[in-house]
Nucleic acid binder design. Sequence first.
DNA 1: CCGTATCCAGCAAGATACTG
DNA 2: CAGTATCTTGCTGGATACGG
Lengths: 127, 127
Amino acid sequence: MDRKELLEKKPMIKLHEKLFLCPTSAAMELIGGKWKSVILIHLIDGKKRYNELRKELPMITERTLSLQLKQLEKDDLVVRKVFTKTPPLKVEYSLTDFGRSLIPVLEAITDWGIFAAEKKGAFIFEE
Amino acid sequence: MDRKELLEKKPMIKLHEKLFLCPTSAAMELIGGKWKSVILIHLIDGKKRYNELRKELPMITERTLSLQLKQLEKDDLVVRKVFTKTPPLKVEYSLTDFGRSLIPVLEAITDWGIFAAEKKGAFIFEE
DNA sequence: CCGTATCCAGCAAGATACTG
DNA sequence: CAGTATCTTGCTGGATACGG
């Protein structure tokens, strides 16, 4: 069943106990928000430890990073693997297969972001 | 300059007086939120009057629809055209060229939303 | 090292009533 | 017809301190 055919049936989508009336807004529920897409992008090139993510994303607070990772994990986009039982802990985050299915979408969004920033003269390059 | 080359320069993007450190989050600033992508999708098939949008999106409040349309207009994704000067007013909304450049992205998101909903058994079809 | 607890501010968005 | 005004609520995310 292709997109047009399916969309004509006007299906609803149940996610997080909420109803969405189009797949676009349902997708946005999963990848929207201020940080989710950024975290996902940073996991494209492989697994990362919690502190690696913190260093690569210094402007996210620990609390928010933690909450967003939990959401992504709950939505099966990211897996959390624990390697030690006693402190210091070693934890690695990586994309699931489902999460990897998002890569083309994230790249399409990124490419459009670049296009938009160029077109609107919004880029700022530092020396 | 292609994506990888550009991203290696780690440019920032200034939008709405805020700084974004990757084009993905900048793009999300423009099309994220609960309703923007849904409104944009409904404008793909041509111009719509305010009340048409309200009828097609009955779950958005007037206030929110109005605010989101203003944001989209300010970001040059949508144009608002007024055809009468005295009530009853006739106003039409449509995508700008810049807004139309988003169509492939919106469709990519939608397609992934369909894929995700199917995979997670989240679709609900009514009779 | 990898988080959680607590507290708080700001904003997105809903409900409802009203206007040019 | 096409909105705005007003009031309110709930969520996202920030700051900081602490815990296994």
